[in-house]
Design a protein around this nucleic acid. Sequence first.
RNA 1: UGGGGAGUCGCCAAGCGGUAAGGCAGCAGGUUUUGGUCCUGCCAUUCGAGGGUUCGAAUCCUUCCUCCCCAACCA
Length: 763
Amino acid sequence: MSETPKIKHFLRQIIEEDLAAGKFSEVVTRFPPEPNGYLHIGHAKSICLNFGLSQEYGGRTHLRFDDTNPTTEDMEFVQSIQNDVRWLGFDWQDHLYFASDYFEDLYQFAVKLIRDGKAYVDSCNLEEIRAMRGTVTEPGQPSPYRNRSVEENLDLFARMRAGEFADGAHVLRAKIDMASANMKMRDPLLYRIRHAHHYRSGDAWCIYPMYDFAHCLSDALESITHSICTLEFENNRDLYDWVIEHCDPPAKPKQFEFARLNINYTVMSKRKLMTLVKEKHVSGWDDPRMPTIAGMRRRGYPALAIRNFCEQIGVAKANSMVDFSQLEYCIRDVLNYEAPRAMAITRPLKLILETYREGQSESLEAALFPDEIGKPGTRKMSFSKTLYIEADDFMENPTKNFHRLVPGGEVRLKNAYTIKCERVEKDANGQITALICSHDPNTLGKAPEGRKVKGIIHWVDAQTAVPAEFRVYDRLFLDERPDTVGEFKDSLNPDSLVVLNGFVEASLAKVDAGSHFQFERQGYYFADPKDHSAKKLVFNRTVSLKDGFNKAASEEINTPAKVEEVQSVVKARTYEEVLATKAENQVPFFQTFHNDYGLSVDDADTLSATPELAQFYQTMLTSGAGRDAAAKWVVNELMRILKDIALAALPFDASKASALVQLLEKGTISSKIAKEILSEMVETGQDPNAILETKGLKQINDPQAIRALIEPLLQQNAEKVQAYRDGKDKLYGFFVGQAMKASGGKANPEILNQVLTAMLSAS
RNA sequence: UGGGGAGUCGCCAAGCGGUAAGGCAGCAGGUUUUGGUCCUGCCAUUCGAGGGUUCGAAUCCUUCCUCCCCAACCA
């Protein structure tokens, strides 16, 4: 089985940096489901991530039920969730928590906020609050209750808790900023009144905390170090930090977001899955077609395969949709190694051996695993005159590349003899009822003499075969993205479940429910954990075998045609266009820079972005830097620095910047060294000439010195030199890079290139 | 039209100024008593587009384009 290499995705990087910086001694993550539905493959990614991270770096992961909404949550779900997490292979030990256990702590934090004037009771109703929130482009309006006194707020909040008010009469809100560009910060709700029975806290409370208040504080209460959630919570991070800052719990967890998992040909939202269950499009949450963990388990997906899959798809921040075939690959990869082989006939076709004596029978031995798996074990298979083969393995009028059974053709019965089809028997309607064949008794365990038999098919002995039901599952939806084609239910695949009745070999008569098999040449099957018994054999098709023959025919009928993207050619902006966008105090600078200094429209635009920047640039000029060089430097180098530090907060002034640019202009330093000096200036505010001296960063211009640098390098990389000379000229960059590194970045690049080129071409 | 994210092969995804990793899918061969597995080879002169900086740009600057998220008393 293939090993999935572990990529250092951004969360692992963050954790390693935090660990290296000594921010904490162990990683504490949490998986925080709301108990209002079953877990699905998307949750599996989160579970693997959270538990995986704490395992890798040393630490622990908590299982915490985020049960702050009494109207949707249920004990059934807390059971199923625990079951699913455990089945996936993870252990939270004694770290099982419930947000509902924190209700009292949370209440006290809210009281603190009120006391500090950071929260207030709002008595507006739902519609009023919504109306006053504003829109994404317009600021919200403060509630008329926003300035209630601390005493009044305290009193009201206590009475809310005491049950004096009806649902919706009041809410507790954070007092942040109704004009914030981040809608989540416009005085978000912290508590609402709900006279509802909670599945755990019962009737102890009639006010319940909102997610944004409860979640971050629950994290803090548990000393979570890395609170990992999905992308849609990015906007909530400001609020997460705000609540932590103002409630000031001892621990200060941080939130990080990653892209949730999407897989094509399925749906992942709880609402849609719930609909499928409620409207009986599937048999339940654990229907093998469901992307739920319970469904996948019942389908026969190994937990290891799911874990491998989650590792394989990676963790990043780009919305993406993973191909179903990637999951299937992981399942086959595990099952190929785990599932013993057996033979099953799903659409039986009777086959009579006219050369085999009536009443005779023999016992043949068949390996449980093919040689390359390296696992021992055999089973017995009875063989007699009448057999069943798969109807698909015979074609009366074969297509071109069909190399299974055909009239007059010979084929190998796997683990038995080769046979030849002599005649086809049909009923009155012309339907094939049986195949009359002959067998070559001299082909057991060896190749027939004088001829090659290419086809191999599977079979069962009609005398001993056991009837079995096969549930052949396929993708639940016809469209890659069922949720984007109007009503998602319209995309339901009518053939997602096909029930077939056939036979399995006798050795499977007493297998336990929940065992895996590979039915040779067909697929991996799983004895259904609920419906399978010795009385009635029921096998779920977990996944088909990869099919190198039929695939061309069955290729994705529903794959939408790629829409050609129209590339509009972007024209450079004209002086007039940019001028029209400039503010009044920018215009004079913009005009001077472009018209008088001869700078490009873009550079003039950038330099005149603020009067302060424009003045900074002009001061550089009066300190001696050239117009062009200074402009390039400010636009390309300083602008980068200014993303992190405001101009006014820069530890050096325009004259020092000017000095740096002049060094560059004189050729004393290369642009690479200029960058190095700049970052030093940002750190220390020192004069560039001083940095140059103390660090010895003067450019190396002597060709001999550079040659001496390159020589050993070429010797050490003789094969690469050869490859380069043989035409792999991309390697040039490698040599430049190495040589530059060897010089500590000080080699004059122009001279270095000359010397290098000469040395590489001299053979 | 505000704010927050994201764009690297058909699908995921590394890459953090110096030779465009890897996996899935696909294609072509080899091994094979599974049209499976396994093995070998092929599969991005180019990183959403344009412009710029640099000896050198997927990586830095700049303009633009596209997609996702935010206006539940859900989480």
